[in-house]
Amino acid sequence: MHEMSICQSIVDLIEEQALAESFDRVSRVCLEIGVLSCVEPGALAFGFEVSTRGSIAEGATLDIVDVPASAWCFGCNQTVEIARRGDDCPRCQGARLRVTGGEELRVKELEVV
């Protein structure tokens, strides 16, 4: 379950920021997770609670913002939105697509006290 190490990375990142931005308590963590990223939000939420125990983000609310997936369709010559990898183009039903977005895995912002 790599979500645990991802959560650990989030905690590391928060603690780095705490030094840089001078805060010592985090009440909310907002993440942007692409729908094509290799992360399962449920597992992430579980891992987050475990990983933040004893850290300055203990008890913080976790907000996950889904970032939709986009792909370049070679048939339509334009960017289209897809639901998952391997989907056909929703416009022309072509299969020649290259994923261009939706793999994000970012900490967007923190609400600190």
Partner: peptide
């Protein structure tokens, strides 16, 4: 709010 915008 502290904007982080950093890859995890």
């Amino acid at each position: 709010l502290v904007a982080i915008e950093t890859d995890i």
